[in-house]
């Protein structure tokens, strides 16, 4: 799905104002920079919000928005020193409750992250979820994610980083090669049910991405970590494209396009003919391609190059051959 930058909606601005005011009250005096850092917004957004707050208030007894019915700030400190000091407060004292959907977003996010070692203390997580439900203005929406057990590999990785020591493990690449890897862990990433470790690989002398479920027997070494997350710029995309990448033309059912979106280059040229989308994906080698295509039978078909078609066909044929040899009565492929 294409991402488009959204203009900030008026309701988002309202949510921001209702959150900013109680924080400003608590702070007493604060700089525009500090406020921007706290809320992760620009200084211009803070200044705009403060100017709006300073002229807002309630109609009051006279219904005329008189001086005492409005917020006020110390204007000289704001104008001359970029400082925010509320000198008159109206109607608002405390932070707003979460909406039912907001509480649900937090709760389902926590459930999704239950594999993290940080979330291993289930009773602490349960009490946090209960607190969110109590702090919501409505029952949290019924959106939930299946919780999983704390992941042993992630726990070892986190421990190694905390100790400042490299982690080593056996790794089975998608080409089917067994390798011993020693890694400075940099980041844990996930997309839905797939989890990855990104780290500096001492075997390859480069940043590499490892699937957590392909890591076998992880253990902490006694070698200190040489590269830290702060030293290495990690590309945003999980799979670093490389000049060695192979381009493959495929036909795909329109409904399945999102399933292969991660493999499509940004400038992929897609055409639609007879209800089938013809597009290009890039893969680092055909070993990964054959697994991907075989898991989407009848949905994705390789068109070109012929070598790629052959690799996929061979992969499927090797499998059917095994079934035929174990069950001689099965009709053979035509």
């Amino acid at each position: 799905m294409a991402e488009r930058p959204k203009p900030q909606h008026a309701t988002d601005k309202l949510a921001f104002l209702l959150s900013l005011v109680p924080w400003l009250i608590d702070q007493g005096s604060v700089t525009v920079t500090e406020a921007a850092d706290q809320f992760g917004v620009t200084e211009a957004q803070i200044r705009d919000a403060v100017r709006l707050i300073a002229v807002s208030g309630i109609p009051g007894e006279t219904s005329a928005y008189q001086h005492g019915d409005l917020f006020d700030i110390a204007w000289d400190r704001f104008d001359d020193h970029d400082e925010i000091v509320l000198t008159n407060m109206v109607a608002i004292d405390d932070s707003p409750r979460f909406s039912g959907r907001e509480a649900a977003a937090f709760i389902a996010g926590l459930q999704y992250l239950s594999a993290l070692p940080e979330n291993a203390d289930r009773s602490a997580i349960d009490s946090l979820m209960a607190k969110l439900a109590r702090g919501a203005s409505a029952t949290p929406s019924q959106v939930a994610v299946e919780a999983t057990d704390s992941d042993a590999t992630l726990a070892v990785v986190r421990e190694s980083v905390a100790a400042g020591l490299q982690v080593e493990f056996d790794y089975l690449s998608s080409k089917g090669l067994h390798q011993h890897r020693r890694v400075d862990p940099l980041r844990i990433e996930s997309i839905d049910a797939d989890w990855y470790l990104r780290g500096w690989c001492h075997l390859r002398e480069a940043v590499r991405t490892f699937r957590i479920d392909r890591i076998v027997d992880p253990r902490i070494t006694d070698l200190p970590i040489t590269r830290h997350a702060a030293d290495v710029t990690l590309p945003d995309t999980l799979f670093e494209g490389s000049t060695d990448d192979l381009l493959v033309t495929i036909d795909v059912a329109p409904s399945a396009v999102p399933l292969i979106a991660d493999y499509m280059p940004d400038d992929a040229n897609s055409t639609s003919v007879d209800g089938v989308v013809r597009t290009t994906i890039h893969v680092s080698h055909y070993h990964g391609l054959k697994r991907l295509v075989a898991s989407l039978p009848g949905v994705v078909t390789v068109v070109d190059p012929p070598e790629a078609r052959r690799v996929v066909a061979d992969w499927a044929r090797a499998a059917t051959a095994r079934y035929e040899s174990t069950n001689p009565t099965a009709p053979s492929a035509t």
């Binding site: 988002d12 949510a15 921001f16 209702l18 959150s19 900013l20 109680p22 924080w23 608590d26 702070q27 706290q38 809320f39 992760g40 932070s95 707003p96 409750r97 979460f98 909406s99 907001e102 509480a103 977003a105 937090f106 389902a108 996010g109 999704y112 992250l113 993290l116 940080e118 994610v145 990785v157 986190r158 980083v161 905390a162 862990p185 940099l186 980041r187 844990i188 990433e189 996930s190 997309i191 839905d192 997350a229």
Partner: peptide, 25 residues
């Protein structure tokens, strides 16, 4: 919006030992 309200409370987060970039789509 939930994060705005959380920040409104003024609490600060720990700096995590290990970076996480996790995503539910």
């Amino acid at each position: 919006r939930a994060l705005l309200k959380l920040r409104s409370l003024g609490g600060t987060a720990d700096v995590p030992v290990l970076g996480y970039v996790t995503q539910l789509r």
